[in-house]
Design a protein around this nucleic acid. Structure first.
Length: 287
DNA sequence: ATCCAGGATCTCC
DNA sequence: GGAGATCATGGA
């Protein structure tokens, strides 16, 4: 057991800020430039980046460090990955060059599922606020005024009415079904991680309020299914605009092209494209 | 102010 | 089975 107060880890092809702020997660707070407080599930850490060094504060054990290394996907060769994707076409190269330090996080399943259920027909700033409300209402205080994301058990007393009072709107009934399925053993994590992606997707789709887009986000961001290509309005726009020279292309055609071009790396490609499109307003009127 | 959001479901035909 | 309406709410 290592007991340093601060642990420094070398990284490459990584930007803490871009990885947190590219829209894949919602529980982070900027402390100062290049320094963030980050929560995932029932854990929290403070991290600072200085060039190719990450400093983990209060990471008092190897176990803690391992959790966050996995969370940030620090040990993958993103240099090689980006090289492969960039060679595909100029658009992908440009999207990658725009934010070359984006990694795909490995998030807590229940948190990821509820967060992306909340994401539908919603803005990212408001998603963050709604997630925070759930944490403050049902979660455990972790310190520094921040709460853990509640477990399904912690949310078992929730009602649709209460969730509506908390501002979850029409998503309240969806959250209720997710809690109910989780607490009744219908979403056993140990079994889910073993499933083929297609089977796991169908399992997620059985939850009321989880459609293809939300299911794919869960598959990519919490189950590490990097071949999945979550296609929201932004990704749909940027793909339609650049690859089809049309305003809108059927989803199936986008999935097919993504599979052909990016294959098992489609999930990474998606995140570079999403971040690039959203920050630059690609495909929007006037963009 | 009023438009719209990292969609999904329901309701028609 | 595909297009269109509906959903709650607040950030921009």
């Amino acid at each position: 057991m290592v007991m340093e107060k601060e642990i420094i880890v070398g990284v490459s092809d990584f930007s803490l800020a871009d990885t947190l702020e590219c829209g894949q997660c919602f529980r982070y707070w900027k402390v100062e430039e290049q320094e963030y407080l980050i929560a995932s599930g029932q854990k929290m850490i403070r991290v600072r980046q200085k060039e190719n060094e990450l400093t983990f504060y209060d990471a008092s054990s190897e176990k803690v460090l391992n959790y966050w290394s996995n969370f940030f996907d620090i040990n993958r060769d993103y240099g090689k990955l980006k090289q492969t994707l960039s060679a595909e076409d100029a658009i992908m190269a440009e999207a990658i060059a725009f934010a070359p330090g984006v990694h795909i996080l490995k998030q807590d399943f229940f948190e990821c599922m509820i967060s992306f259920i909340l994401s539908q027909n919603n803005h990212i700033p408001r998603i963050k606020k709604m997630v925070e409300t759930l944490c403050q209402t049902y979660g455990t205080l972790l310190g520094e005024g921040r709460y853990g994301f509640p477990t399904a058990e912690q949310m078992q007393g929730a009602t649709e009415e209460k969730l509506r009072e908390l501002g979850m709107g029409f998503r309240a009934k969806y959250i209720m079904d997710a809690i109910k399925k989780a607490n009744s053993g219908q979403l056993p994590l140990a079994d889910l991680v073993q499933m083929e992606t297609e089977e796991l997707r169908n399992k997620l789709l059985s939850i009321y309020g989880v459609g293809r887009k939300v299911a794919d986000c869960i598959l990519l961001f919490s189950f590490g299914r990097h071949e999945v290509f979550p296609t929201d309005v932004w990704v749909k726009r940027v793909m339609s605009y650049y690859y089809f020279q049309k305003e809108e292309v059927p989803l199936q055609e986008i999935f097919q092209l993504a599979q052909e071009k990016y294959g098992d790396n489609a999930g990474f490609a998606q995140q570079y494209l999403f971040h690039y499109a959203r920050k630059n307003g690609i495909g929007k009127k006037g963009g």
